[in-house]
Design a protein around this nucleic acid. Structure first.
Lengths: 258, 258
DNA sequence: CACATTATTCTCATTGTGAGAATAACGCCA
DNA sequence: TGGCGTTATTCTCACAATGAGAATAATGTG
């Protein structure tokens, strides 16, 4: 059905989650609509009918740490600090502080790429995203109240997208699903760039190569490309055999410490 | 609702999966019923109304490797070998062989505790479980056809249970959910026995202790117990603080290699 | 009091990980 | 044509994590 709608060939598909929040019905009745979300990966396609490419960091700019700590994170942390101070009791305050530290990190805790949904839900609860006001029946503008970076979406779609990003960021670490996003042959640098785009963090290039080659996920094609600039890069391809050989292998990226 | 039905206090709860197979409707109509499954963990309770304790290995005896390789695995591998040989083409035969190797292991590949669902689905496809015959409208007996160890369940319930076991075996490796199954204080040996019961494999005791203590998941109570036999064991308790401090920590058991 | 039993602590070889230096091979441009 | 910027690729090394087993400790039992 999706392939007919979008004229995109779906690669990997998995069920994501079944969403059934009260906020799903904008009419506010007690009837709930259920959405069974699926996550699919496709190759890059130039133009594909109704479907159109979107950068997901447009909706989650705080999730993109590829260029170092994003500015918006500081603004968010400032707002969340205010939110923690609005807590009723001291215990609640400490809970809120811990939650902010856990999701957005601190000087002690490094950034963790996976809890995308937890971060979004925290922003929602702290009413820093427009959806939180909208779902409570408040009318615009809330411009002074919310974080302006990061486009909102209708209904609970941004929550669904956050769930998908979380799932995908987790998945690439133990299953070789990134390759569903790659062209048939590619240089290792492009593979790394793809993984970095998904996880939102920069990786150490030599270690990344060691990992990919050590796991036997790719094989030589014998060709090279000069499109990358600099020294020509070897073109490799995914070793499809690993799918039938083994169950586990993904790209265990430097996972959050402590 | 579940707590009211079972008079069990639910600890951890998460959505498992939404099941919608055609086999769900025994009437065979084109209407499908959806089941949104949830997974919950509870403390051990002596007696609890309609709810009653069941050993899940009653349904999946091949998943219990705590006493070494179970006898039934050999019988299964024998049957699956026959199944691979019934393949139409040579390519299909190699695919089947690889799949058996991947799920049930081989002399090269060690046992992997997680793919419980993949294993069950393989047995289903190879028609080694009664459900496969039943869903095709075949009448009993199929005793000569199927693996007799492992009780069947109605509808797709055994598939749902397999999904739950897979999920839980994965989860304990990166979230401290085992503690939801433990009493308030316990010796480390009992914790290890619980993890072994869930994962179905034996663990190296000194290394397990090092791991649990190194992650700071438990704290001393000062008490000991002699109930374990042998040298008295220290009673420890779960450090609830880790739940608010960190996101990651689970008991990364010796994960399958290669 | 020897012994079986479980708990607990240590040791050690091996592997995996994170970080950075060093080297290679292009295009571009003076 | 050679220096330079750029990206690719290979090496090295310190350090942490892991798997396995030995050694030691503290009970109850016969």
């Amino acid at each position: 059905w999706v392939e007919a709608q979008t004229s995109q060939k779906l690669g990997y598909v998995e069920q994501l989650y079944t969403f059934g929040d009260r906020y799903r019905d904008p009419g506010g009745s007690d009837l709930r609509s259920l959405s069974i979300g699926y996550l699919a990966l496709v190759q890059e396609a130039g133009d594909a009918g109704v479907a159109e490419w979107r950068d997901w960091y447009r909706y989650f700019p705080w999730e993109d740490w590829r260029g170092g700590r994003p500015e918006v994170v500081n603004r968010i942390l400032g707002r969340l600090k205010k939110w923690t101070q609005e807590a009723g009791t001291g215990a609640e305050k400490r809970l809120r502080e811990a939650r902010v530290r856990r999701t957005f990190g601190s000087t002690q805790l490094p950034w963790n790429d996976e809890p995308v949904l937890e971060r979004y839900e925290l922003l929602y609860e702290a009413r820093l995203v427009p959806e939180a006001h909208r779902d409570r029946g408040m009318k615009a503008p809330w411009s002074a109240e919310v974080i302006n970076e990061g486009d909102p979406m209708i209904a609970d779609h941004r929550r669904i997208l956050a769930t998908a990003i979380s799932r995908l960021r987790g998945k690439i670490k133990y299953r070789p699903v990134v390759f569903e996003l790659m062209p048939p042959t590619f240089p290792l640098g492009q593979l790394q760039a793809t993984v970095e785009a998904l996880s939102g963090v920069r990786l150490h290039k030599p270690n990344f190569r060691r990992l990919v080659e050590g796991l036997g996920l790719v094989e030589e094609t014998g060709q090279t490309t000069t499109k990358t600039g600099g020294r020509p890069a070897r073109l490799v391809q995914f070793r499809r055999e690993v799918l039938i050989e083994r169950l586990a292998p993904g790209l265990r990226l430097p996972i959050a410490k402590l």
